[in-house]
Amino acid sequence: MDIVVKKIILEVKKGNQEAFSELMDIYKDKVYHIVYRMLGNVHEAQDVSQEAFLRAFMNIDSYDTNRKFSTWLFRIATNLAIDRLRKKKPNFHLEDQVAGTEDLTYYSQFSSDEELPEDQVVQWEMQEWVQEEIMQLPPKYRSAIILKYLEDLSLKEIGEILNLPVATVKTRIHRGREALRKRLRHS
């Protein structure tokens, strides 16, 4: 494992909170990205990824420094995301009103200080569309697909994160890939 990361973790284990913020700066984007792709919603993504870091801090003593930290952390994050999906009420949409506001939709939650050029709009729509397609996958395929194609992790690592044998990971990726293919082939 990265020596710098290991050093920081040893500091955190000694009870140094400030070191934990360094650890967060290294991993926050990855954790947030995985969780966002799992949940498809910025608010829940922020909520769940914060929760993931809090749990990681609370349970840092149970982390074995001989193993890869990112695997351990991603496991906490994906478990929390899957829990959230189980409890989740029916999907809501970006066009929905934010609770307790007059005419604020979830679109306005995206920061956009300037007018987006057309190609950026197209790109953004493309991103939205990819996310929507990922959201259509059953969660167990979704997590495997995200870890493989968006995080570029090996099957072995994915297996460790999801606590599954490699053969099962492979099957889930194959099935997820087939499901996506059926939806995307006509685009």
Binding site: R37, S49, V130, I134, Y149, L150, R181
Partner: peptide, 21 residues
């Protein structure tokens, strides 16, 4: 399937909000 892989991989990396830490 190749096209599916390419589209999936094209999903950009979202970053955590600025005040996250």
């Amino acid at each position: 399937l190749r096209k599916t892989e390419a589209i999936t991989q094209s999903a950009s990396h979202v970053k955590a909000p600025s005040n996250f830490t």
